Amino acid sequence: MGGLIKHIKGDRTIWSIVAILAIFSFMPVYSASTNLVYVVGSGSTFGYLIKHLVLLLMGFVIIYGVHKIPYRYFSGGSVLMLPVVIILLIFTLSQGTTIGGANASRWIKIPFVGIGFQTSTLAGLILMVYVARYLARHKEKEIVFKESLLQLWLPIALVLALILPANFSTTAIIFSMIMLLCFIGGYPLKYIGYIIGMGLAGLMLFILIAKAFPDAMSNRVQTWENRIESFSKADGVEGYQVKKAKIAIATGGLIGLGPGKSVQKNFLPQSSSDFIYAIIIEEFGLVGAFVVIFIYFLLLFRIVIAAKKARTIFASLLVIGVGLPIVFQAIINMAVASNLFPVTGQTLPLISSGGTSIWMTCFALGMILSVSASKDETEETILDDNPLNILHETL
């Protein structure tokens, strides 16, 4: 064990936060999985716990492996991965899976393993690295808007356009995080305003096309409308889940009912994923709720520290770009469970069950730890990240 710890580099506080969240997750996941066993009638609680354990162990392997990679490779790697991501998104969208008449083509099956993989989460991670790369390379240059449209915004628009039909919430989160990263990275504010306007116009155009030709695509827009209506009127499937989540929160009180003693887990369909925060409050009370919030904000604080201590512009933007979405996703999940935000389908990072979310979160954390572990990087080595050079070094 001591030998393994010696090989662990980077911010030890971030390592500790990840371990705490992972260990804590076992109890709410084990408790909430009873809904899937006794209500839905699939699997066993022990089986779900083992699956969650395996996913987390694989996640830690990902963190360890990624944090050993010099972070300068992520810059060129984002350029290499962008076409791969586009192909994966096209393939995922072409699956044509529908749920209740709505497009739900978010997942692809990993061959020979049978595990579902949500390609949009990988796409979001790659885009953040790609944006950090562009901003770092143009930090000391005057940005020409027309040139940035082709080099920066065209790939972003293509990826987001492929995610949007099946997953509006993820599209909105990625777009918001890119705007924030561009603001932090010094992209001209008036150009950010142009991009936001173009993005809203593109969204309106998509909605109009979906409304005008409902048979041409599975009408995901209707799902968005239903969720907003359910949020405002507290009815429908989403409204039912929110009501049960509010009951769970109210029942929890100050210290909760105790680990494994949740009642509402038997009525919440997404009790182990989207609404797991409500189960945490019911079992651990407001004390447990604030502890979870504190841990995520501590993670945010350490992300900011890692970005501040980074030796290069790309390293700082990389940490901010892949780190902030983790905390932002956690805030959205907790806001949904508390009925402060419409249902989005976003999980609670490192706590909710689910493979893709855990793995991509761990990949992002590995990148952050790679930056915090670096000692002697220089700006020159960061700028020398041509994808062909990366391939040559790898081979």
Rank of each mutant, 00 (worst) to 15 (best):
S273M: 02
F168L: 15
V319Q: 00
G65T: 12
P349M: 05
T356G: 02
I87N: 01
A337F: 06
I14G: 02
G258S: 08
L268P: 04
F284D: 00
S16R: 05
S273Y: 00
S169D: 12
Y296P: 04
P70Q: 02
K68Y: 03
M334Y: 06
L164R: 11
F290M: 09
L127I: 05
F117V: 14
M334E: 06
A210E: 11
A157F: 12
K243Q: 12
A102C: 06
L49N: 04
F297L: 14
V54S: 06
S218N: 10
F275Y: 15
S42P: 00
L149A: 00
I305Y: 05
F294A: 15
G186R: 05
M81S: 15
A278P: 12
T45L: 03
F91N: 09
L203G: 07
H52S: 04
H138K: 15
V287N: 02
I279A: 02
I280S: 02
Y130A: 03
S42N: 09
I192A: 04
H392N: 13
H67F: 11
G199D: 09
K261Y: 09
V263I: 14
G124R: 00
A123L: 11
A278F: 10
H67C: 08
K211V: 08
N219T: 12
A161V: 05
Y48S: 09
K246W: 02
L135Y: 11
L200A: 12
G114F: 00
N103Y: 09
P259E: 01
L122D: 01
V40W: 05
M177C: 13
E142S: 14
G10H: 03
G65A: 13
N386I: 12
A161M: 15
K9P: 04
V237S: 13
S273W: 01
S370T: 09
G253C: 09
G199N: 08
K308D: 05
I14Q: 02
F168P: 09
S230W: 02
V29Y: 01
L80T: 13
E229V: 14
P165Q: 13
I108S: 10
S370A: 15
T13C: 06
Y38G: 00
S25E: 03
G197W: 01
L181K: 07
R106A: 09
L127Y: 06
V84F: 10
L88N: 13
L298P: 04
A212T: 13
Y187I: 13
V144H: 12
G47A: 13
Q241H: 14
P269F: 10
V84G: 11
D376M: 07
A161F: 06
F46E: 11
S120C: 11
A364M: 07
T223A: 05
G2W: 05
L324S: 10
F297Q: 02
D274N: 08
V129K: 01
S353Y: 07
L365S: 01
F26Y: 11
F112E: 00
M27N: 09
L391F: 12
Q118P: 14
Q264V: 09
T378V: 13
S42C: 00
